[in-house]
């Protein structure tokens, strides 16, 4: 079973994402900020990470940088309420930049794309 980490400071989003992804047949780990996310990345052999950008303690951009430094081949998707971070070149290291929507089809399609094998 593929392992996915979802990092988001909003509990409701974490719950929504984990419910939906579990339904798709993935094993889901949850983190409330970048630091928690890095801890899990260090401990668990993950297949994909979904990062929110605006989070307390450590934001998604810093988490992305550190994840890519350590595991450049681990796909990281950014899922954010903000469109403008797209201009920030630091976000370009991510494999996908998705603006949050109540319709999770785009997110699930992207996850499927990176985890198809």
């Amino acid at each position: 079973m593929k392992k996915i980490l979802v990092a988001d400071d909003e509990m409701s989003i974490r719950l929504l994402y984990s419910e939906e992804l579990k339904e798709e047949g993935y094993e889901v780990y949850l983190a409330a900020n970048g630091r928690e996310a890095l801890d899990i990345v260090a401990k668990v052999p993950l297949d994909l990470v979904i990062l929110d950008i605006k989070m307390p303690e450590m934001d998604g951009i810093e988490a992305l940088r550190q994840i890519k430094e350590k595991q450049p081949d681990l796909p990281v998707l950014l899922s954010t309420a903000y469109g403008e971070y797209r201009q920030d070149f630091a976000t370009w290291a991510s494999d996908e930049y998705l603006v949050k929507s109540s319709d999770l089809d785009d997110l699930k399609a992207a996850v499927k794309r990176y985890l198809k094998d």
Binding site: E10, L16, E20, A81, S102, D103
Partner: peptide, 17 residues
């Protein structure tokens, strides 16, 4: 708008569920 988006995503997402 940003403040509204997160709860809206939850509301909408769970409504779909």
């Amino acid at each position: 708008a940003h403040e509204i988006r997160n709860p809206l995503v939850s509301i909408g997402g769970f409504a779909r569920r």
